[in-house]
């Protein structure tokens, strides 16, 4: 029995377009990426393990993943509030605010980096009010958190917003007529609908933050063991021509990124199955 690889169609161009797409994607993305894994095979296991588990690397994971996680949590909460306000309420300037939410996607990361540093440094617009309170943001791990929160801002808003928009108001009306107060309706009717989107948005914000470089390096201060993120450590190793070390750390980051991407896909698969099941 012949395996059907492609269903017949009268439209032309399948071989040409798919062939070109695969060729191009392999050349630009797949082959160079697999080169990273091939390069690690030139390291012995001891060398690899030594590089990825030295104290400086461990400290950088802790900062990178910790700040990314906190940033995702902050954006999970405030992103939902922003999505809710944008969908449910009308106020002057709403459409401008809605458009501006995407700014962190469109703004080059270097611009975000120097701007946040200027604002949060001790004589900056916000930093000067935090300094007397004993809060130093720029050039500390707190600065990393600020940059990663900025970078992750649009994700939760943009995943929760369409779900809120499509939410059937009649279900909420029914809940209220059945005697639920607004808070109960929110918790028992709205939140369960939002969960998958919220989780997806937070996972995306986290995944993006873990690899972020440009916006962080200006505000972080980049002190080894204290405020050095993993992508910067890779960069430092590259500048010292330690290609093996950079590759080892790069593989760790890449595996983490793939696991996160897989998780995001699983969440989406799970929620779309839940939706079609009804």
């Amino acid at each position: 029995m012949a395996l059907v690889l492609k269903q017949p169609s009268v439209l032309p161009g399948f071989g040409l377009t798919l062939g070109f797409a695969l060729f191009y994607f392999s050349l630009i993305v797949l082959i160079p990426l697999s080169g990273l894994f091939v390069k690690t095979t030139t390291l012995t296991w001891e060398q690899f393990w030594h590089t990825v588990s030295e104290p400086r690397a461990l400290a950088s994971y802790q900062l990178t993943f910790g700040a990314s996680f906190l940033g995702a949590l902050i954006n999970g909460f405030f992103g939902s509030v922003v999505a809710w306000v944008l969908v449910r309420y009308r106020f002057p300037g709403r459409s401008i605010v809605d458009a501006l939410v995407d700014l962190p996607f469109a703004l080059p990361t270097a611009v975000a980096g120097i701007t946040l540093t200027a604002i949060y440094s001790s004589n900056g617009w916000i930093g000067r009010y935090l300094e007397p309170l004993g809060l130093k943001v720029a050039f500390t791990p707190l600065g990393v958190l600020v940059a990663l929160t900025f970078i992750g801002l649009p994700f939760v808003v943009r995943t929760v917003q369409p779900v809120l928009q499509d939410l059937d108001m009649e279900v909420e009306e029914a809940a209220t007529t059945l005697g639920a107060n607004r808070w109960q309706t929110f918790r028992a009717v709205i939140v369960p609908e939002l969960w998958p989107a919220l989780l997806t948005g937070m996972a995306m914000a986290f995944a993006r933050s873990v690899g972020e470089y440009g916006s962080v390096i200006f505000i972080a201060g980049n002190m080894p063991l204290k405020s050095e993120i993993t992508p910067l450590l890779i960069m430092t190793k590259l500048e010292q021509y330690d290609y093996a070390g950079a590759t080892a750390l790069g593989v760790v980051m890449l595996v983490v990124s793939f696991v996160l991407a897989l998780m995001i896909n699983l969440i989406q698969w799970w929620s779309s199955r839940r939706h079609t099941a009804r």
Binding site: P32, L36, T109, G211, L238, A246, T247, G250, S257, A261
Partner: peptide
């Protein structure tokens, strides 16, 4: 999904 630093590293 890939960190920009790694995007550059693979070409180096």
């Amino acid at each position: 999904a890939v960190s920009p630093v790694i995007s550059g590293l693979i070409y180096v």
